[in-house]
Amino acid sequence: MLELEGNDLFNYNPQNPELGWTVKEDLPAGPYEWKGTRYKKDANGNYRFVYDGRDAQAGRNINTVGFEIPLAFISKEPATDRIVRMWGGSYVRKASSLVKAHAPSAVGSAWLGVKNMFTKELEFNNRDSDYNQVDHDGVPFSDAALSMRYDSHVGVANLKYLREFTTRFAHLGWGFGPSVSALGLPTCFDHSNSPVSVHKTYTLATQAFPRVKNCFFQKLNMPDNSWNTSGKAIPLRYTFEVFLPNLTAVDMDTNGTWPFGRRPEDQVATRFLATFLDMKQNCGATACNVETLNEPALWESAPIEPKTVPNPRFNDKAFLPEFPYLAEPWPEHTTYPKE
């Protein structure tokens, strides 16, 4: 999150300000070991964000498929079954599916013919075996951060990976926790007052759990009540409920904002980062919440440069308020500028 003193690989270099944007350099020969002891500070005592809030995809179109499905289509009791859990995946057709089965002998050909009599030719080929999965997503960001994008980790039955989630969350906590503390914000992660991020991995969940337990079992505060559009008594979500199971759970009695679903405009990366804040304490004048790190005012007063939120706050074009809820496309370009 914060630049490390002595990290010459990708710390901001005023002599090469476009490094990583329009300038790409080759990774120098190793070793890549970092031997510093603290976060980098400038002459004014400010830390520097690794992020600068710029939108790297601004001006580009992203292929999107939008669906709007009545709840009654997927639930027998839409009035009472108000939680919809979902995941997404993308697939490509296999080359092998385009090549018809081939039998070198007459007997084999006859058998293939008979077999084919019972094979329904489909207008749309939905045979799973004819496709390779390219990507999938259960819970945005958490899928990458905690589930490491493993195919096996998508779906309902992911309780068996609790040990991995614990050790992985602790690994991430050693990265984010000390950064959060350095900025003067309270963290739920127990990093034993480490002054700098530590690269640490665990084998035993029993060693990691004491450090992450406060994060796992804290309620994720919301910035206000606008999320509860039904006025029903809906409890705040716990952090562990975000990734168990690894499915995006949309509460139809809310406006569907993360972690009660995921709205297109939600800055999920920043909200996921907020799970390392201690939600029982204040961040500034108000209780820490999932939007705290997305508030420009926080960073204005923080000892950091640049004084921007870590990730883009808004889409580069406003989303539509009605179906398909996507932004209007940008004009197509044959080539795109690098910035």
Binding site: K94, L98, V99
Partner: peptide
């Protein structure tokens, strides 16, 4: 290896065959 190829890689599929 063939199973890893997409429909756009039919030439590579043929090469493996």
């Amino acid at each position: 290896a063939q199973e890893l190829l997409s429909a756009k890689q039919i030439k590579d599929y043929a090469w493996l065959e």
